[in-house]
Amino acid sequence: MLYIKIADLKIRIENKYNYVRALCKDYIIDECEDYDISVSVSDKEIDDEISVAEVAVSRGYAEGVCVYRNICYQLPVKFNSYLLHSALIEYEGKGYAFAAKSGTGKSTHIAIWQRVFGDKVRIINGDKPIVRYLDGEFIAYGTPWCGKEGFAVNDSVPLRALCFIERSPTNSIERIPASDAVLRVFQQILTPRDAATLDALFPLLDKTLMQVPCYLLKCNMDDEAATVAYNGMNNDN
């Protein structure tokens, strides 16, 4: 048994393998009765996860994936929050979430931000942050689940921009309307499996896209990609 806190939620995990405990070491809290979420993973779920994994994974690793999925399925209905598959950074107190099809170069792009703007750019989470609507504001939270580079900081930041990345020979950025962004954001969330989750998640996405400016960044791997992105996301507010 393991207790962790992510996105300001207390979570009880009935783990079978030590992998999850090691993964979550920076998020562990004392045992408590008033946890918000409780998850366990069946052997069948672990078997299924191993069979669909693209590379050979351990049972512990597979359990970790299932634990997070089971947590995330509970987020929209109960906690006005959801998993946003993206690379989340903080710079000058603002949270920027970069989303793209896998292999496009999210990690590369945020590495360019660090190269150009220095240590003041903090990578909060490289792959799977949680976005939560709290007191009228969208806050993005780091979690232990963070992609292969291992960028994970146990912290949160107000989400100020959502930026979709496409590769291009030249660098440009444009603000895109919510109606365009919503189709892109669908690629980056856990598709709901039941009506209650759907009816909690969709209004939440609607609100996110109305409140958080969305951009389409077409970029290469030059330093200019970061300056174009930064300027584009800061010239209208």
């Binding site: 919510a178 109606s179 962004a181 919503v182 189709l183 669908f186 598709t191 709901p192 499996r193 039941d194 009506a195 759907l198 009816d199 969709f202 996405l205 609607d206 896209l209 109305m210």
Partner: peptide, 27 residues
């Protein structure tokens, strides 16, 4: 299959058993 409106778009999503035949969304 259910139809919902989000950010001005009409979206179809599969729920429950239907996710086994279709996993994704249709605009």
């Amino acid at each position: 299959f259910v139809v919902r409106e989000v950010a001005g778009q009409t979206i179809v999503v599969a729920l429950g058993e239907a996710t086994k035949i279709f996993n994704g969304m249709i605009r």
